Simulated assay, not measured.
Amino acid sequence: MQRRQLVRAAGAALALPALARAQAYPSRPIRYIVPVPAGGGNDMIARVVTERWSRLLGQPFVVDNQGGGSGVVACQTTARAAPDGYTLLQAYVATHGTNPATRRVPYDPVKDFTPIGMVGASPNVLVVHAGVPARSLQEFIDLARRSGGKLSYGSAGLGTLTHLTMELFKHDTGTSLLHVPYRGAAPAIADVLSGQTQAMFPSVATALPHVRSGKLRALAVTGKRRSGQLPDVPTMEEAGFKGFDAVQWYCTLGPAGMPREIVQRLHATQVAVLGAPDLADKLASEAVDPWPMSPEQLGDHIRSEVARWTALASARNIKLEE
């Protein structure tokens, strides 16, 4: 009996520091690194979420935009930070999906980070110039097959989601389209609008005003369900391409080795933030739907994304030197 009591006492003593740490956290501002310059959709999402998150935690979030190296700078800064919960990263599909799949990055997207939770996701949409004689996905596929590679598509750059999504489309449909890479989504969408290129797979938020104006025609969206912004546009799965899923997602990570109790506190409060109706309204401007996910589920998701995009990049011979 005495030995059992001693074991229980020792266990309780070991748990005390962890409990105290969780109750004391956070006691100072939290640095929230965003791997893009200020002003874009990724940055807006971070500011909307952290504004509400800070109220629940009782400490301010300091948004730190680090846009260098396609997210490499932000990822390295986070990975090297103390794992105490005071440095977090808003990672996304590029930093922890497509970039590691298409180029050598100086961080391990799985081993160097602690998953906190998924924030949200936005589908991409296949759009064509209004002058393209295809009013449905099947008509576009037939047109592309007949064209013999003469149709072209724009992307936000080599190895980006807009590039890989169209390569996935080509792979699954057996079509051939000429890739024209740009430095960002804005110039790429501008050339689709002018008719210099015929198609693109941009985010719904990027394409939406041009679809509504009639300058672009939306043929299909990615994701598991139809976009609330484009309810009449079918998903790729509905059109017969099962498993075709390529979405722009955003999540929160910390450095590897964060204490479990701090991770749990951050995750629980983040889920509470994502459940607020007014947050969904705010994120709708970027066509982002809240997508709560446990730390374990997020870790599995990142591993899955890196694996699937790596397989596609290998199959399509896409490998960047940078």
Rank of each mutant, 00 (worst) to 15 (best):
R146S: 09
T206S: 10
T78R: 01
A239F: 07
A207S: 03
R135F: 02
V63T: 15
P209F: 00
F241L: 15
A79W: 01
F140W: 15
A10I: 14
A12M: 12
E51Y: 13
G39D: 06
M236Y: 14
T197Y: 02
Q198Y: 04
L6Q: 14
F169E: 01
Q229P: 02
Y32T: 00
A280H: 04
P106A: 04
R21E: 12
P295N: 05
Y86Q: 05
V221Q: 00
L177H: 05
R80I: 01
G195I: 08
I318T: 10
P35R: 08
R104T: 15
A101E: 09
L158H: 11
P123S: 06
I262G: 02
L161M: 14
E286R: 07
R146Y: 06
I141M: 07
V119M: 06
V125C: 00
E286G: 08
V288H: 01
D84S: 06
R260E: 15
H129G: 09
A94P: 01
E238Y: 08
S27W: 14
G41R: 00
A207V: 02
G39P: 05
F169R: 02
V132N: 01
N317L: 12
V49F: 13
G148D: 05
V306M: 04
T95E: 14
A199H: 02
S227N: 05
Y92T: 11
V306I: 08
L312A: 05
L14S: 11
L137G: 11
M200R: 04
V247H: 03
D245F: 15
V73K: 11
D278M: 01
L151C: 05
G254R: 06
K224E: 15
T222D: 07
G174A: 10
D172L: 14
A205Q: 11
D278I: 01
G159Y: 06
K170C: 15
L57I: 07
Q5V: 14
P231V: 12
D289K: 13
S213Q: 13
T162N: 13
S122N: 09
A272S: 10
G275P: 04
L266M: 10
A121Q: 08
I33F: 08
